[in-house]
């Protein structure tokens, strides 16, 4: 130490190495840096004592503070649940119009509904209720089992062809597969179904076949789908008058449905969700665009000031 050389300009010791007359300074670490480094070591040791730190076998040192992320998360989730509970409580007792009149409740119902829909319903019904072949579109105004908030919620509760005792149940016979009708008869009734639907302009049904099919329709199909094909929600029979088809709208696809009589299954959600969540979910679906009013629509009395002129002759959807 004593014989180490000092640089005359900086006053710092040199390392003693010399390259072509250049010497290297042995500048010590800055004090403040060194102290922070020592302090960090102390902090680390204190941390080991206080917090979970070292793995031992299958466990780990728990630390005297007993900190655990798992417990914290459980507590956080619990706190969140109880914080939201009053809102769900209010939701469970609110009607569609009550929800719509209360911006806070509405916002909550939308958010909660969207989140649950995304987790459980979207897989089949698509984002935003876009639907898929065999899985009904929820965003349109066609409802198999009814489109009021109460109807939607009931469908959610009991499911469709599910294991709930009161489940929505309808079973279209597989007319072709089960040989209830001959192949020719299936063809004819398909032409008839097309002829009474809005698809007739598009698919140009065979008039003669349709005429033959009418008799079969009235005998086999009218009980559920109605004499005019308007459908019957009480038995879950879709309307055949529009041009929206659950299993596809080409001639082949329509025929295939007559032949196979397919029907999908939706689980009953009653046991999975509480009343508030179910109401939120129903509200979200109801709001996708095709929701219908709860009470049977009052007979439309056209007021003096006519609401917006209806385009293409379709009536304005009634006020929700």
């Amino acid at each position: 130490m004593a014989d180490r050389e000092r640089d005359s300009v900086s006053g710092t010791e040199t390392t003693g190495h010399e390259w072509d007359g250049l010497k290297e300074l042995d500048t010590p670490l800055p004090r403040w840096w060194l102290y922070i480094f020592y302090a960090s070591i102390v902090v680390a040791v204190v941390y080991w004592v206080l917090m979970p730190a070292w793995p031992i076998g299958n466990g780990y040192t728990k630390g005297v503070l007993g900190f655990s992320d798992r417990i914290n998360v459980t507590a956080d989730v619990g706190a969140l649940r109880s914080a939201r509970a009053p809102m769900y409580q209010r939701l469970a007792n609110a009607s569609a119009s009550e929800i719509a009149a209360d911006p806070e409740l509405q916002e909550f119902a939308r958010a909660a509904g969207e989140s649950v829909f995304g987790d459980y319903c979207r897989t089949c019904h698509g984002a935003g209720g876009a639907g898929a072949p065999g899985y009904p579109v929820l965003a349109d105004d066609v409802w198999i089992w009814g489109g009021s908030l109460a109807d939607i919620e009931h469908t959610l509760r009991v499911g469709v062809r599910a294991d709930h005792p009161d489940t929505r149940m309808s079973m279209m016979p597989a007319f072709g597969r089960d040989r209830l009708l001959t192949s020719q008869q299936v063809d004819d009734v398909t032409e008839y179904a097309i002829s009474i639907s809005a698809a007739s302009s598009r698919l140009q049904p065979d008039r003669a076949a349709a005429a033959r099919g009418e008799a079969i329709y009235q005998e086999q199909c009218a009980a559920c789908h109605g004499a005019t094909g308007a459908g019957d929600r009480s038995v879950g029979a879709p309307s055949l008058n529009d041009d929206l088809w659950l299993y596809g709208g080409s001639r082949e696809e329509i025929r295939r449905q007559v032949e196979m009589g397919r029907g999908g299954v939706m689980p009953s959600w009653e046991r999975r969700f509480d009343a508030g969540t179910l109401r939120a979910l129903a509200y979200y679906v109801h709001e996708m665009g095709g929701g219908e009013p709860d009470a049977p629509p009052a007979p439309v009395t056209t007021p003096a000031a006519t609401p917006e002129p209806a385009q293409n002759g379709q009536p304005n959807a009634p006020l929700r």
Binding site: G126, A127, G128, A130, V137, D140, V142, M288
Partner: peptide, 18 residues
């Protein structure tokens, strides 16, 4: 504009966007 569904066909044949 809602992107999903991109559009919705209604019972009377009209088309709706949200």
């Amino acid at each position: 504009r809602d992107r999903s569904p991109p559009f919705v066909r209604l019972a009377d044949g009209t088309v709706r966007n949200d």
